[in-house]
Every structure is written in structure tokens, then in C-alpha cells.
């Protein structure tokens, strides 16, 4: 059987570099996810607002995010703004901006969905007990909303982590890029490295996303 080429990872600091690349990907997702959740909560509440104009604006925002491929957004923010606005954004900043722009829209929509899925009678039975609106939100509505939200938003988190593989296109050296570099550098001595190294990258993504997915499933079951 031919060698799978995994051995190149144990040469020098290759594996450490690969893990370093993974950390870059995880770091971008963590920052973006944190921002998306915070801003998404606000946007989600605004999406249920009575104002038609506000609702329409957020609707358009959400559609733009859904229609536009993330890579195009990355290019617009990283390359486009440099010429047009003269901004010199770091690649990682651009990535965080794009991922947050995406995450806030999707998170907002999840929050909106969770909020409107709480039956009206839950508000009423709280009010009938004398709770004022802020108490109703704090003790009755929000705890239920968050429970519905967590499994859904974890899904979004894993999608974000996976999509960070795009950021190598704007020059960020993350796990996939490091893998490519290792493969290129060892092309002669270990021509099969592409298989082994990318398989390890696959495994690394799996190791990050799988536990998150399990957590979502667990919470979903517990709070069903």
C-alpha cells in the first residue's frame, strides 16, 4: 500500500503549525460568534418591532446576507474598501466584519423566530399574576426564548467555523492554508501528503464541530 503521507506532519514543527492555523480559524469564529450573538439579540428583538419600515430594512439585510456568497462579501470588504474608501483593513479584521455581518443577520432571524414562537398566552398568564412587562420578559419569556435558541445558534456556530476555510482567499494563514504549505514544501519527498494532511485537517474540523453538535443535541433533548 502506498504511504498516506501523514508522516510529513511529524517533521519539524509542522503539526504545531497546523494547530496554530486551526487556532486562527477558531479565533476568527469565536470573536464573530460572540459579536453575532450580542448584536443578533438586539436585531432579533427589533425584527419583531411594530414598525413596518424597521422590519422591512432587516428583511432586506437578511436577504442580502443569504443571497450573497460569503466569499464575495470577503472580497468586497477586504479588497473593495481599500480602493474605494481608502481603508487599510487587516485581513483578519475583514474576516471578522464579514462573519459578524453574516452572523448577526442569521442570529437575529433565529431570535425573531424564537420570540414569536412563545405563545401569547404565556405573556397573558404572567400578566394575570400581576407581573409587569419587564418581569414577564425577564422571568417568563426570555428564559424560554434562550432555551429554544441555544440548539439553533450552535448550529450556526459550527457553520461559521467551517466557513472560516474561505478566509485563506484573502491571505489569512489558517489551518487549510498551513496544510497547503506543508504539502507544497514536501511535494518531492512525500507526493502523497495531500491525502494524509487534508485528512488530518478534516479530522481537526470534526474534533471541533462534533462536540459542539453533540452539545446542541443534548440541550435540545433536555429542554424539549
Amino acid at each position: 500500500m502506498q504511504s498516506l503521507g501523514i508522516d510529513v506532519l511529524f517533521k519539524g514543527t509542522n503539526f504545531i503549525r497546523l494547530l496554530g492555523g486551526l487556532w486562527v480559524a477558531v479565533r476568527i469564529s469565536l470573536i464573530s460568534v460572540a459579536l453575532s450573538i450580542l448584536l443578533g439579540l438586539v436585531v432579533g428583538v427589533l425584527m419583531t418591532s411594530r414598525s413596518k419600515i424597521l422590519r422591512a430594512l432587516f428583511r432586506i439585510y437578511l436577504e442580502i446576507v443569504r443571497i450573497m456568497p460569503q466569499m464575495v462579501l470577503l472580497f468586497v470588504v477586504y479588497f473593495g474598501t481599500t480602493r474605494v474608501f481608502g481603508w487599510n483593513l487587516a485581513a483578519e479584521t475583514s474576516a471578522v466584519i464579514v462573519f459578524t455581518f453574516w452572523g448577526v443577520a442569521e442570529m437575529g432571524d433565529l431570535v425573531r423566530g424564537a420570540l414569536i414562537s412563545i405563545p401569547k398566552i404565556q405573556y397573558e398568564s404572567a400578566e394575570a399574576l400581576g407581573l409587569v412587562p419587564t418581569q414577564t420578559y425577564r422571568y417568563v419569556i426570555l428564559p424560554q426564548t434562550v432555551r429554544r435558541l441555544i440548539p439553533l445558534s450552535i448550529n450556526l456556530v459550527t457553520r461559521m467555523i467551517k466557513t472560516t476555510s474561505l478566509v485563506m482567499m484573502i491571505g489569512i494563514v489558517e489551518v487549510l492554508k498551513v496544510a497547503q504549505q506543508i504539502i507544497e514544501a514536501n511535494r518531492r519527498v512525500s507526493p502523497n501528503a495531500a491525502f494524509g494532511v487534508f485528512a488530518v485537517v478534516f479530522l481537526l474540523y470534526f474534533l471541533i464541530c462534533w462536540p459542539i453538535g453533540r452539545l446542541a443535541a443534548y440541550l435540545e433533548k433536555r429542554w424539549a
Binding site: P119, I121, Q122, E124, S125, A126, A128, L129, G130, L131, Q135, Y139, V140, P143, Q144, R147, W223
Partner: peptide
């Protein structure tokens, strides 16, 4: 109410205690 409308995220005790503790 007809459909009871207990708070699903709270236990029986939690449902009963919420208003006396927080409101009263």
C-alpha cells in the same frame, strides 16, 4: 385558563413561587 399555561421552564414549585416572590 383553559390550557393551564404553566411556565414550561419552571418546576411546579417554581411556577407557584414566581409571582409571590417577584411581584409581592
Amino acid at each position: 385558563f383553559q390550557s393551564y399555561d404553566l411556565f414550561p421552564h419552571k418546576t411546579v414549585m417554581g411556577n407557584i413561587l414566581l409571582a409571590p416572590l417577584k411581584v409581592q
